[in-house]
């Protein structure tokens, strides 16, 4: 599946939710099921510090693909991270660089990526793109 197709799949999954409660409950569930980053990789260097919550992001490059694992101390943030990992992990650097992430807006979670939230998510996306650029060089 392409990034676009995975994004479309997520949009469809979210389309069944009529109110925010269901949507948040689903994110909480996703957050709980996200395979967390290995303790040994929860390093200071992998930490993205927001005022609201902390996010850890680890990247590995193997056979032309980037593998991401991530974690957060806040569960809703973690739920959103799990969506981002699903979209971005096991992709080529070029795919990642070109992704536009419109699906976040479509599923109504745009506010969580606003710079004012300071929850580390925006910085996480930036970091993912930086990894992709570094590995494409």
């Amino acid at each position: 599946m392409t990034i676009k197709e995975v994004e479309q799949q997520i949009v469809e999954e979210f389309s069944i939710f009529t109110d925010w409660m269901d949507k948040y409950e689903y994110l909480i569930e996703l957050g709980k099921s996200l395979p967390i980053i290995k303790e040994g990789e929860k390093l200071e260097g992998n930490l993205i510090k927001g005022c609201q919550s902390r996010v850890w992001l680890n990247a590995e490059f193997k056979d032309g693909l980037i593998y991401f694992t991530a974690d957060s101390d806040a569960i809703i943030t973690k739920g959103i991270i799990s969506l981002l990992v699903r979209v971005f992990s096991e992709r080529t650097p070029a795919e990642i660089i070109n992704a536009d992430l419109n699906f976040i807006k479509e599923i109504g979670l745009q506010e969580n990526l606003s710079p004012t939230r300071a929850n580390g998510l925006l910085s996480m996306i930036k970091q993912i793109k930086i990894y992709a650029m570094a590995y494409s060089a």
């Binding site: 609201q52 919550s53 569960i75 809703i76």
Partner: peptide, 21 residues
């Protein structure tokens, strides 16, 4: 329950709170 999660959910309930450091 992380403060940021509580604040996000309660925001949806119309309650404006401060969370963070």
């Amino acid at each position: 329950a992380h403060p940021s999660d509580l604040a996000m959910i309660m925001d949806k309930m119309g309650v404006a709170l401060r969370s963070g450091q």
